[in-house]
């Protein structure tokens, strides 16, 4: 009776530990997938209007631009749709001693600009260029 109880308890404990481990893995994986380098709000959800929207508004909604250029009196702010992958690191087990080797591969690194907001000297939006269809 006692042995059976201990066996059952052991199975139950193992099941709970496995569940805990699985839960931790899922939690870590979900956390790992979170992007923390994108703009505060997506360029597609920010409503802008030429002749009305100001630099301060765009700055507040989208954060700092990825690129900034000038053309005479005009100022051009370019926004990327997200971060670029600069490197990928993988681990592999090799040899009879099961040594873990880390391999780093360089990623493309460069961000692609998807939206360009053009402001006049007064800091008011005069033009929006959506580059997504042009790339």
């Amino acid at each position: 009776m006692g042995a059976l109880f201990e066996k059952r308890l052991g199975v139950r404990l193992r099941f709970q530990v496995s569940r805990l481990l699985l839960g931790s893995c899922v939690a870590l994986a979900t956390l790992g997938c979170a992007h923390r380098l994108g703009p505060p709000a997506g360029t597609e959800v920010v409503h802008v209007e030429t002749g009305k929207t100001t630099k301060a508004y765009v700055l507040d909604k989208l954060g700092l631009p990825t690129t900034r250029d000038t053309d005479g009196q005009l100022e051009l702010w370019g926004y990327a749709d997200g971060p670029a992958v600069s490197s990928v690191q993988t681990a592999s087990v090799r040899g009879p001693n099961h040594d873990v080797a880390l391999k780093t591969r360089r990623g493309p690194g460069a961000q692609s600009i998807v939206m360009v907001y053009v402001f006049d000297a007064a800091g008011v939006l005069v033009e929006v260029n959506d580059m997504r269809g042009k790339q």
């Binding site: 900034r68 690194g109 961000q111």
Partner: peptide, 16 residues
């Protein structure tokens, strides 16, 4: 960024 089977380094540049 931890991707379970590998790690990825993401890069972003903001201009002020």
């Amino acid at each position: 960024v931890y991707k379970v089977l590998y790690n990825e380094t993401e890069h972003h540049e903001s201009s002020f």
